[in-house]
Every structure is written in structure tokens, then in C-alpha cells.
Design a protein around this nucleic acid. Sequence first.
DNA 1: TGATTTGTGGATCAATTTATGCGATTATCT
DNA 2: AGATAATCGCATAAATTGATCCACAAATCA
Lengths: 183, 183
Amino acid sequence: MLSTTAEYALRIMIHLAEANGEQLTSEEISIATKVPGDYTVKVLQWLGKEGLVLGHRGRRGGFRLDCNPKKITLLDVVNVIDPLERISQCPLGREAHNSALCPLHKRIDEVIAMLQDTLGGMTLTSVIDGTPGPTLCPPEDVAITVSAKRSKLPKRKVQAKKTTSRKKTTSRKKTKMNTVRTR
Amino acid sequence: MLSTTAEYALRIMIHLAEANGEQLTSEEISIATKVPGDYTVKVLQWLGKEGLVLGHRGRRGGFRLDCNPKKITLLDVVNVIDPLERISQCPLGREAHNSALCPLHKRIDEVIAMLQDTLGGMTLTSVIDGTPGPTLCPPEDVAITVSAKRSKLPKRKVQAKKTTSRKKTTSRKKTKMNTVRTR
DNA sequence: TGATTTGTGGATCAATTTATGCGATTATCT
DNA sequence: AGATAATCGCATAAATTGATCCACAAATCA
């Protein structure tokens, strides 16, 4: 239902919200949320561009929440990654159908609207407060509480892999442009 | 929200349901639904494996609906393509959380449940009967009626790229996303 | 100051999804 | 039977998404 990346973003935001404004390194976040190491940084940067988190470099750097968790909803977070858009015009290309989608797409659009309403009604805080205890299932080998003094982060095991990079990740909006693979 | 392929499947099923059991060639279907030529066949075959449509070869071959449009829902169709599954266990890997998902995933799961209910409540017939007129927006340059004589499908422009090959597309079920990379 | 830590941002690789091509097979018509 | 029309099904290509690496910039601490 949600893309993998959107799931990651939600986990990260919930985790940061639970940290109560405290700053955490990307590695701490990665471990707690089980989002793959370097990819955590990418997601954090996307969230940062939208002003949801703030990164600080340097020795005691890290990321912290930069928004009001009482205001920000799951929909807001998902929208950073892959915007959930209403169907405004007929996917079959009939331009005159803007105000009168064909029945099938009208139904699908209704479903999307409902989804937006539902996700848009769930704030980070409400999710966290909804049930006692930690909001994310704790990873099996790591302490749950964020307050633990930032202790020696276990080095991520570097496992000699290939490197891949991405096209120009400034905006995650679906890039129309055809990436011509030069290689 | 829906994958491209799921959208295609819905268009095709609605179109066939409107044809009232009549048999249509894949090309006719492709034109009417604007699903890319050969891909139409692929989607039809997936639908066929689940018993929703039936294909006939030979000179007067084609595809027709092989289910009761009053019973089959949009959810059924979507499930053929990419199953909308409830979250049954914590994505963070905590195995003991089966019966008690962490709050975030409980919420997400609720959303999925709602989605299922909604899509599962919309039968093909109900969508078609919901509004008078054709259920799919008619393509701009082609007659709505399926009877249009089949015309040459446009060739795609080949543009020298890299090729990556695929896993073995027999089942479209999402393949467990944590693939341990052996490399 | 200089070493270390941590984020920034771009480049590249890998996996998945979407789309096409083509030969073989099957049914129908004459 | 033979020609033809259409699906079947596999192989491949292209596009998108997920993940990793690396050089560098900035902040901190000794």
C-alpha cells in the first residue's frame, strides 16, 4: 500500500517525535527504525527539505524534529515521499472530463479522498499517544529508550559492496525525465 | 495509490463487463482502455489465471468475462495484480508482535482494512450502473464501441540503454522485500 | 590548530516494475 | 489440408525505485 520509502519516512518521523526534540544521529535512527544505513540519510534529507527535520553537522551533530508533532500528520509525511494525489483528470486522456470523471475513476478518486482524510487525521502525537509503550516495535538487539546516553555506536559493518547512485535526488517527485544511463 | 498495472486491470475488467459477456480481441481492449498493446495481453493473462476472464485462440478468438460482475469487486481485481495485504506482523522484525502490532503499524493496518472494505464493496456492476453513460472515458481518437477495426499498434522507439533482467515473473506477489544480497 | 565526527550532495549500482518482441501453438475459415 | 488470425509464453528491454559509496563541508573537541 505504502511504498517502502514512505514506510521508512513514517518510522523515522515517529521515532524522532518520540525522542521529544532531542537530536539523534542518522546511525542511531537507522538502527532503531531498521531503515538501511545510508538510505536513512537520504530519507532524512528529503524530510529536511520539506522542513520536517533539521540536520546538524559536526561532532555532536545529528537530526532532530523541526515541526510540531501535534500538527504534522501521517499524510504530511507520506506526501514528502510520494504525494498522494487526487485524480483531477481522466487517465484515459479525455481532457474534457476534468469536472466529470468517468465512473471508474470517480470511485477511485473517492477512495483516495478517504485515504487522505484518514491519514490526514492522524498526527504523529496521536499515534504515539494512542497506546502506552514505545510506538515502534523495538529492534531485537538494541535498547528502546532514546534517552540512553549516546553511547558508542556499533559500527555498521561495511561489507564491500558495489555502489549505486541515484539520479538527481533533489526532488522525489516523480521525475518525468528519462534518465539516460551513461555507462 | 494503485500501481499502474492495477489501474490497467480495472479498466480492462470494467470494459469487459460492459461488453456484457461478449468476446473482444486484446487489441480491441487495448485501444478502448488505452493500455499499452502487448501489455494488455499480459494483464489479461494474469486475470485469466485467476479465472476472471477467459481467452480463446484461433481465428475468432479473444477474451471475455468469466465471472459474475455482480459479485466481483474492485478489490478482487486489484488483488490479482498486487494483493493488498493486512499487516500481520511487525515490519521491524519483532516476531512476538503478531498479536500486538506497534501503534504505527496498527494505524497503517487500520487504513488498509478500510481500503479493503471500500474496494471490496464496489462490484463491477455497481460501478457501471452508478452513472449513466459509458463507464470509461472514451479515447479521443477512437470510437467508443469496441467494434472499431483493429489498427496497427505504434512501434516504440528503441533508445539504446542498459538492460536489467527480471526475476521470473510467474507470480506477481510481492517478493519479500529483504532480499539478502549475496554479492 | 588539527583530528575526528557527522551531515551534504552527487554519482553509481542493484532490484523491481512496466513494457515490448517474437516464435510456437491453437482454433477457425475456406 | 492449408492459410490465416489470434493467444500463449518466454525472453528481453526500458523505466522506476531502492540502496550504497565517496569526496567534501561543517562543527566540535583536545
